[in-house]
Amino acid sequence: MADNKQSNTPAVSMSAVNKWFDDFHVLKDINLTVADGEKIVICGPSGSGKSTLIRCICKLEDHQRGSINVLGTELNDDIANIDEIRREVGMVFQQFNLFPHMTVLENCTLAQTLVRKKSRKEAEAIAMGFLEKVRIPEQANKYPGELSGGQQQRVAIARSLCMNPQILLFDEPTSALDPEMISEVLDVMVSLAEEGMTMVCVTHEMGFARRVADRVIFMDEGEIVEENDPMTFFDHPENERTKLFLGQILAH
């Protein structure tokens, strides 16, 4: 049934979405469609609303106007089965947010057993498969506090993948990492992209954007200012604000 939906409806479609934090207008008339299998990179200066935008997709934030459709279901206050949509949408956070009181393996099996009702054995087999994919199966029985930042973020990605999500959201996944650990996380993300995962990434890793993005979106002051394929976006930006931003982050 889910497969049927995928072929017909976009993974995410937002139309005229507006959001306020009290008086602060953080998202202004956002229109965005993410097709199934599409990879989108969102960038922009801090405070531009890019994190808020993807947090709206998994309803970590509520929007006040407009509509958001995820996998064919509209997100609003009425739906009691919001958890059902959340389990189809994975999220990888800047601060990893691994559960510190559980081992790496337990982090990866928790939601499988509780939400997907898998047996412990089955869940562990799936978890080990994804830990191998992110190349840290040997850390399975350690606690998150014993791992480096890059390793923790790869565990976080594996934890999301264990739920077999149809969309994966990344909220600045490499911003909290030491420079030498960024590439190990990006490598995992690239291989996911190559396998056809639908991805929406908030990131400033422009090399990654060039390599895997189908579209790059530039946000500023709560608006989508520019949206283009990576080649055009980086080589021939149209908007002045985009040019200024790219100049700043690519200057060195």
Binding site: C58, L60, D83, E84, R86, R87, V89, G90, M91, F93, Q95, N97, L98, F99, L110, A111, L114, V115, A156, R159, S160, M163
Partner: peptide
């Protein structure tokens, strides 16, 4: 507890 812990649980679909 950092709010991210609960958010991680939310995005995994935990009740």
């Amino acid at each position: 507890i950092p709010p991210g812990q609960d958010e991680a649980g939310l995005t995994l679909g935990l009740s």
